[in-house]
Design a protein around this nucleic acid. Sequence first.
RNA 1: GUGGGUGUAGUUCAAUGGCAGAGCACCGGAUUGUGGUUCCGGGCGUUGUGGGUUCAACUCCCAUCACCCACCCCA
Length: 420
Amino acid sequence: MEYQIPRGTYDILPAQSYKWQKVISAFRELAAAFGYQEISTPVFEQASLFERSSGDSSDVVKKEMYRFTDRKGREFALRPEGTAPVVRSYVENRLDIGSANAKLYYIGPMFRYDRPQAGRYRQFYQYGIEFIGSNNPYYDAEVIAILWFYLTGLGLQKLRLELNSVGCPKCSVDYDKALREYFKPHLPQLCPDCQIRFDQKPRRLLDCKVPSCKKIASGAPSQLDYLDAECREHFAAVQEQLSLMEIPFVINPRIVRGLDYYTNTAFEVIYEGLGAQNSLAGGGRYNALLEQIGGKSIPALGFAGGFERLLLALDEEKVSLGRPPVPDIYVITMGKAAQQLLLPYINRLRQAGIYAEYDPDKTSFKAQLKAADNSQARFALIVGEDELASRSVVLKNLQNGQQQTTPLEPLSELIAILKG
RNA sequence: GUGGGUGUAGUUCAAUGGCAGAGCACCGGAUUGUGGUUCCGGGCGUUGUGGGUUCAACUCCCAUCACCCACCCCA
């Protein structure tokens, strides 16, 4: 084979595309019901947008970003995530003018140079929500509700919503200090990765998977004990709102968000049974991000989820996403005259929204009927010499074999039968 | 980026150094006006790719590409 798809990418083939259409339209409909509107941004942005927002020590920025220089030497990057571009657009297009909250959603491809694995690709599709404009804990719950109702609404059962608060920048300074104090005596026993984490991002020490580190981390102080009064109150209020909305959650003080811009509420939806990549979606509040990238200080939050993993989970749980479309009718003609007579009618049926399949390459009656059967069409529409003479068609129900003869004109009668 | 595994027909899999096969799917036929069942017929596929060893390679060796699994990272 001369050409091959790039590593870590995939084609969505026709046999799969109806599933994608289904999960995408379900997301659009739910978001719309909550009053969220779609925003689309370019797949590439100035590289520094991501460096400044995600944090230049994050792996996403350090080693997973597709960077390139354009012909004039500008530094760009294929977007590795969706929040920073949306916030950039919000600030740039002055959506902050007036007092209205921005309720936004997006759907599109993201790019990260990772080693491909089940549920992990270099180009992957995310759906996401961004809410900008209020620090009211109601909105934390609302955003989480959209995610929760989306996933449960599709039919997933084995979901777990995990909730945490990572505090504001002020309390996380205290917490980082406490963590360092706790880990310092154990430093020599920690794995090499954790040694680096100790300096750069002590919080990451909490979710190391090396058993010895895990053991040490199990006694570490909890973030929740280091929240200041305001953050503690906000976290409690979010929980209350979620309970009022009847959304089940568990508190997991070990949730660490990978990107630097998160503050306060952090959450993740875990699906057991996907192997290592078991996080279906994650998000949180990012009250400091807008100011960080040059806007006014406006509180905001959001989440993002990956469609690939979602589809894997739906598959694993054997949730049906409907079927690929099947024809309403399969047209069978015998002889050239019948074919010529029928051609305009076929298209008139199609214009009326009826899915009519027709294959001029199949000539024998038997082959056509067999193809009609294989297509799973509801009806075969048959026109031969007899029907030609009487300007009628035979409509054969392919499930029960019953046939009826119907005149071609007026076509509305035929359409009524097919739609009914 | 690190470690391990796997690549054979559309697909699922056989063939342990000696002629590349089977099930399913697909196509055709069994009276050119009735499908599904049945019967008959239909397979040269660069054995992922490129080298090497050998009289002989799907099989052994090296490289490379891709996928899978775990680490890592994250959605």
